[in-house]
């Protein structure tokens, strides 16, 4: 990111009209690269979510994609998920919970420098599989793990 762009963003934040527009969600400061795929994150269909984030819904199950998660999650609001991939030239890793209101939970656009694993914590509404899809050289590979949730994590 160039410095001038950053300065521009700071300057525009000060402008009240722009600030109002941002507050309304019409314009968000692109301090981070890549467009956020709003549609993929909003859909309740696993297929649509996969198409939206990795460009297809047919992933080949692979033992090179390993999902590590607890067998039983007592608190669905915080479920630690680790994805380990040994697929070469990975471009992105997306994690889906098909039983969630919105199956797509997170996606990581990775470079060759990222190795071994990525761990994050996600919410799970109820017992579900956790599906990880790795996109590499235009192909999709998947791994999954079932997690039993005893207390759902999306309710109020």
């Amino acid at each position: 990111m160039s410095t001038s762009r950053r300065t521009f963003l700071r300057a525009s934040l000060a402008g009240s009209t722009l600030a109002v527009a941002m507050g309304a969600g019409l314009l968000s400061p692109r301090t981070v690269l890549a467009a956020w795929p709003q549609k993929a994150f909003a859909t309740d269909s696993l297929e649509e979510a996969m198409k939206g984030i990795v460009g297809g819904s047919n992933a080949t199950p692979s033992d090179k994609v390993v999902v590590e998660a607890p067998d039983i999650a007592e608190n669905g609001a915080v479920v630690s998920i680790t994805v380990k991939s040994s697929i070469p030239n990975a471009e992105s890793i997306a994690v889906f919970v098909p039983e969630n209101t919105a199956p797509l939970t997170m996606s990581y656009l990775v470079t060759a420098q990222i190795t071994d694993f990525i761990t994050s914590r996600i919410k799970m509404r109820k017992t579900s599989e956790v599906l990880a899809v790795v996109k590499a050289s235009g192909k999709l590979y998947s791994g999954k793990k079932s997690v039993k949730v005893t207390l759902g994590g999306c309710g109020g």
Partner: peptide, 28 residues
């Protein structure tokens, strides 16, 4: 966005399904 010496090495796209106070661990 994760930067190593000013170079982007990973971009995390997160949705509402990520837990409160997001935790992230990885190696590079």
């Amino acid at each position: 966005k994760i930067e190593h010496n000013g170079k982007n090495i990973m971009t995390c796209l997160w949705g509402p399904g990520v837990s409160k106070n997001p935790f992230l661990s990885f190696s590079f």
